[in-house]
């Protein structure tokens, strides 16, 4: 079993929350860069580095560009490039980058089935597990259906014009059948689920087990305590340092 599969999904998430909270509180460029490098190393270990880099770049690069425009170029009341503005833009861009890279790493290394099982086994309402599971597994199905609807419209020789008119035409031809068929299915699914006793009033047994241990539980509690107390202590320390 790969290393990350042995971890409880909540362990991964709580460690990520602690890392993001503490790194944001420290607010140091080098610490942020070190955390990003560590996340990339973890993704390389999991064999997901290319995917993480591509997904992160799609979010982080526009965010960096936006920070450069807002703080690097347009300081209050003028439109000029300043060293202070560039420093602010870099710090804010890295703050966003840490959140994005750590968050996406969690999404890539956590198994979706285990996440759903972990939510079901937790004290969260049973509806939450169903909603997360249904959405994650419905998404590829609806994407496939959207593709099939597009192919069916192409077979009918429907050509979409460019611009806003073409967009409305495409919305009508593709979105309407997709929405109607999805909602039709929904109305059929509801009585079946209700007949099977959903949402359950009592805890239901699950065949899938989620790997967990006493050590992992201790890590989770420590990480959440660190996420709550760590930033407060760091910020107090920074204030004292500034005063001194």
């Amino acid at each position: 079993m790969p290393f990350f599969q042995k971890l409880h999904p909540f362990t991964v998430l709580s460690v990520a929350i602690a890392i993001v909270a503490v790194t944001t509180a420290i607010g140091n460029v080098w610490v942020s860069l070190a955390v990003i490098v560590l996340c990339l190393a973890a993704s390389a270990f999991a064999g997901k580095i290319l995917k993480l880099v591509a997904l992160s770049a799609a979010i982080v690069l526009p965010a960096f560009a936006s920070q450069l425009l807002i703080h690097g170029l347009a300081s209050s009341g003028s439109l000029k490039l300043t060293a202070e503005g560039l420093s602010t833009a870099t710090a804010l861009g890295l703050r966003t980058a840490v959140l994005v890279v750590a968050g996406l790493l969690c999404a890539l290394i956590i198994d979706r089935h285990q996440l759903v099982a972990a939510i079901d086994l937790s004290k969260a309402p049973p509806q939450l597990g169903y909603l997360v599971a249904a959405t994650l597994f419905l998404l590829p199905q609806l994407a496939e259906r959207q593709k099939i609807i597009g192919e069916a419209q192409a077979l009918r020789h429907v050509h979409f014009r460019r611009g806003i008119v073409g967009w409305f035409q495409k919305a009508r031809m593709q979105a309407v059948p997709l929405v109607l068929s999805s909602l039709e299915e929904t109305s059929k699914r509801a009585p079946h689920l209700a007949a099977r006793g959903f949402p359950a009033n009592t805890r239901m047994s699950r065949l899938r087990t989620v790997p967990d241990s006493r050590v992992q539980r201790a890590i989770r509690v420590s990480a959440l305590v660190l996420a709550l107390i760590g930033p407060v202590l760091i910020l107090i320390g920074l204030q004292f340092g500034a005063v001194a």
């Binding site: 965010a63 936006s66 425009l69 807002i70 703080h71 347009a74 009341g77 439109l79 804010l92 966003t96």
Partner: peptide, 19 residues
């Protein structure tokens, strides 16, 4: 986030900031 996460919206915010 210190502004917005998109370039287009960032440009609009930058324009207001410069004013």
């Amino acid at each position: 986030f210190g502004g917005t996460s998109g370039v287009g919206t960032g440009a609009v915010v930058a324009a207001f900031r410069s004013m």
